[in-house]
Nucleic acid binder design. Structure first.
Length: 235
DNA sequence: GCCAACGTTGGC
DNA sequence: GCCAACGTTGGC
């Protein structure tokens, strides 16, 4: 085993630290980082095997084609900065495009890194009176360095970020359309609980299984079911 | 405003 | 490498 390869693999692991769980069954949920950490512990394990596992996990990750992105529609001041950015603010932006800066969580970042041009995302209103899905967006620029991490005056300034080795990334998203009606979290929860009992597309929705994550991945089944809700009467 | 959930930090 | 303390998210 050459040293060079070992170093490369280590870098790759760091790059993927706290990659989201990729298994869809709740019982088997585990982060890629912890899996890779476990792999490292097994000294007799071949490098090839570790790579195989990693590739498999990345394959899974790349199967996610739909996303959910949270933003706060109500005024809140953090470090003297207004945090409000609702769907109306997105619509008021130039070309209805914004860069999704300020994400400081590895899992959320990795989701953004795997986003592809043209993929669709829900715009979700969080930390507000009526948390809900409000609109759809399209990824219109794939991930690039989030410069706000280096800006001392930015509310999400990261003093540990290194200009030569950026940690934080963002994507550009463009408003696509309003949902025919806002889909409240309570309604999604209703289906989530139902589907957990009876089986169904929302049985493992990350809004509930990974509630604090600000950029979430959706399977096609989850996306389709949620999109269809706008045509159904509210629960 | 409260607080559960959970990610991060740092002492040991 | 463990884990207590701390900080943040976000529903309620």
């Amino acid at each position: 085993m050459s040293k060079r390869v070992t170093i490369k693999r280590k870098n790759e692991i760091e790059e993927n630290e706290n990659v989201p769980e990729v298994e869809l069954k709740k019982s088997t949920r585990k982060t890629v980082s912890s899996k890779l950490a476990n792999i490292d512990k097994k000294e007799n394990l071949e490098e090839v095997s570790a790579k195989k596992v990693k590739n498999k996990l990345e394959e899974k990750e790349s199967e996610y084609c739909f996303w959910l992105m949270k933003s706060e529609p109500e005024s809140r001041i953090e470090n003297g900065h207004e945090m409000k950015f609702g769907v109306d603010d997105l619509k008021a932006s130039k070309d209805k495009i914004t860069h999704w800066d300020g994400v400081r969580n590895y899992e959320a970042r990795n989701h953004m890194k795997s986003m592809k041009l043209g993929q669709r995302a829900f715009f979700y209103h969080s930390n507000c009176k009526n948390p809900c899905l409000v609109a759809t967006m399209k990824i219109c620029k794939e991930s690039y360095v989030d410069h706000t991490a280096f800006d001392k005056n930015d509310p999400h300034y990261d003093p540990k970020s290194d200009l030569n080795n950026p940690k934080w990334y963002m994507v550009d998203v463009q408003f696509e359309r309003d949902l025919k009606r806002y889909i409240p979290l309570t309604e999604l929860k209703h289906y989530h609980l139902l589907h957990k009992k009876t089986g169904g597309p929302l049985s493992n929705l990350s809004l509930f299984t990974r509630s604090r994550l600000s950029v979430q991945a959706l399977t096609e089944e989850e996306w389709n079911f949620m999109i269809e809700l706008e045509n159904k009467p509210p629960v």
